[in-house]
């Protein structure tokens, strides 16, 4: 209530009978602000704007093996959605499975780790540092190490399980169509949960101790304190972290490409690995890859909108800009 009142005092009241200022007038009035962000906008135009326009342009062409561009209209878009070899729907299914699975389990695991690490106990700093290791390791190193651990013939995991008598044979993980996605998701969760842990640890530190104390005095148990005090305070952080993770996972490439190359038989192919394959592997089909990228860009744009909305919620001034 107090916050709302203070905003009311600060924000200029529109005068009755006067039209709100137009876009140009707003830009002129805020020209200094725009000058501050101009360098960033220029850089974005060069490194994002140009490739974007170029990709959209290329998506309406086919590039022949002799390097010629042949205009094909919307054929590439049509092929992506209908050609069984491009496998769009199967790969979309894989990507959603990967993204939702990875995001959900990384969030749950990261949240749990953050709650544990929020409590004071001897060696907390060491445990936190150890849990951060997966996040700090490069994707390339992690992919190679995990490939070795999970190798179907001489993997450390399978070999150890057989040596300890837990299994008769080494489990087939990366070479099995059924097991490859859950296995890759497990590795990705291992890689990503520390990020959630760090974000939520920071969030937990903003929960007012006074409110928790008051809840305790009112007789709230640990669950109720968490549900009615901690969780509402963390809602924003959880939302933003989840959205960030979701977008990151939709864009995943390195781990999957290096561990399986999207195989076996496309069982672990994701949107980005497929775009890479179309663009650079075999006889490159840059037009088709560009059309695929444009479709993906539109999906990402939609998600980006929700992300910005979540980020600026409760702050209409930022949202309007």
């Amino acid at each position: 209530m107090a916050l709302a009142d203070s905003r009311a005092l600060i924000a200029p009241k529109p005068r009755p009978g006067r039209r709100p200022p137009g876009l140009f007038a707003t830009i002129v009035r805020r020209r200094t602000d725009y000058l501050y962000v101009l360098p960033a906008i220029l850089v974005m135009l060069v490194v994002i704007g140009y490739p974007l326009v170029s990709t959209v342009f290329l998506s309406f062409f086919e590039i022949t093996s002799s390097g010629e561009r042949v205009a094909t209209g919307v054929d590439n878009y049509q092929r992506i959605l209908t050609d069984r070899r491009v496998n769009f729907w199967k790969i979309t299914g894989n990507t959603l499975y990967w993204t939702v699975g990875s995001t959900f389990f990384a969030t749950v695991l990261g949240f749990g780790a953050a709650l544990v690490l929020h409590r004071r106990f001897p060696g907390r700093g060491v445990v936190r540092a150890i849990l951060l290791i997966p996040w700090v390791i490069s994707h390339v190193a992690a992919a190679y190490v995990w490939r070795w651990i999970l190798h179907s013939d001489y993997g450390l995991l399978g070999g150890s399980l057989v040596a300890w008598g837990a299994l008769d044979q080494t489990p087939v993980l990366l070479d099995s169509k059924a097991n490859v996605m859950p296995t890759l998701i497990a590795v990705n969760v291992w890689k990503e949960f520390p990020f959630v842990m760090i974000m939520l640890t920071a969030g937990l530190q903003t929960v007012p101790e006074g409110l928790l104390r008051a809840a305790r005095i009112d007789g709230a148990n640990i669950w109720n304190q968490f549900r009615h005090v901690t969780l509402p305070h963390l809602k924003g952080v959880v939302l933003i972290t989840t959205l960030l993770l979701f977008v990151t996972n939709l864009n995943s490439f390195t781990l999957v490409w290096l561990m399986t190359g999207g195989g076996p038989a496309n069982a672990s192919a994701l949107w980005i690995t497929q775009i890479y394959k179309l663009a650079f592997v075999g006889s490159p089909q840059r037009g088709l890859a560009s059309a695929f990228s444009v479709i993906l860009f539109l999906i990402m744009l939609g998600l980006g909108y929700f992300y910005v909305r979540a980020l600026t919620r409760g702050n209409p001034d930022q949202g309007a800009a």
């Binding site: 490939r147 190798h151 179907s152 013939d153 001489y154 080494t170 087939v172 990366l174 070479d175 399986t260 190359g261 195989g263 076996p264 038989a265």
Partner: peptide, 21 residues
């Protein structure tokens, strides 16, 4: 044959050969 044939290159087969597998 090695189960990992789907993700293997010859380098990994060299390892298996050298290990007597």
């Amino acid at each position: 044959v090695p189960t990992s044939a789907l993700t293997n290159t010859q380098v990994e087969n060299q390892d298996l050969f050298m290990a007597g597998e």
